[in-house]
Computed example of a mutant assay.
Amino acid sequence: MFRPPLQALLSEKIGNRWVKLQEIRCRMNQQLELCFDDTTEWIEPSSMKPDDARFMLNQLSDFSLYALENELREGYITIAGGHRIGLSGKVNTESGSVKALKHISSFNIRIAKAVPGAAAKIMPSLYKFDGSCRHTLVIGPPQSGKTTILRDIIRSLSSGWQQYPALKTAVVDERSEIGGSISGIPQHDLGKRTDIMDACPKAEGLMMLIRSMSPDVIAADEIGSERDVQALLEALHAGVKIVCSVHGDSLDDIRLRPSLRPLFQHNVFERIIILKKGRSPGVVQALFDAVSPAGAGR
């Protein structure tokens, strides 16, 4: 992805610390920034030049930026392994909407990492006495580990956890971040009974999986639109358990969003997990049940 000079500098600076690396941030004419779990560092001497940016875009698009038109409009690209590359630069608009992102000046490479066992402490609270899964919502701000936790919940439900049986689990992976799929095959371990719909809009994917795969549980990352919510309610009426995540800082923040209000009006969620933003992703700040808050770590 990087031109050889920058690639060599990165390899030397990171060394054997890839497991702790969260982001590589590249800004035009600025030093490369490395964000680790416990520190932030800059690579000296280094800076991203226009030739470096063009090289990265050509590598990401296989020399065809047109093929990434939709992704550029969204402001990010997901690559093999589930790594997300955020982009910023000059925006072209049409009728008040983003038409294209051009003259890209910043890249934020967010490293996707599977962490088996990340959800171990919360798994007991996700099961009912009969071994079925509770309708579950994971809430957290950016970089709080929502996808990491959700991925491990999926793996645990699908493979069976302790005395609980393995459940048929379906995943709608709209951004290809949960499974990091290549040609539809997950590169991350999502468990032995998981079926995935990769790179598919959530609303459509949810209904497709319910009709075709008869899941016990269906999971989706970063819900938010009214169409997502309606599809989740349809899954609920079909008797399928729901596990999903959403951007937010608190339960009150989520409850106030108009698009998500129907989920709370119907008391859909039986378990709500609030994640804390910090250096270590996946830290649980609090657990809520359908009625009242529970102490963190319950």
Rank of each mutant, 00 (worst) to 15 (best):
K13S: 14
S225Q: 07
D38R: 05
Q30R: 11
V98W: 05
R255N: 08
R84H: 05
E69F: 11
Q30E: 15
L232M: 12
L150I: 12
I43S: 07
K90V: 14
F2P: 08
P142H: 05
L167G: 07
V268W: 01
L260I: 04
Q285C: 09
I111N: 08
S88N: 12
S212F: 10
L10E: 09
S125F: 13
D221V: 03
D289A: 11
L209I: 12
Q143N: 04
A286L: 02
A170D: 02
K146W: 02
E177D: 02
P281M: 06
D189T: 00
I104P: 01
A238Y: 00
P262V: 08
A219N: 04
M123E: 04
D130L: 01
S47N: 15
K241L: 12
V229L: 11
L21G: 10
F63H: 15
L87S: 07
S46Y: 08
V291K: 06
I153T: 09
Q30S: 12
I104G: 05
I273E: 10
K49T: 06
I185P: 00
I149Y: 04
S225E: 10
G297V: 02
K277F: 11
Y127C: 09
A294P: 00
S11V: 14
C133R: 12
Y66F: 10
S144A: 14
K202G: 03
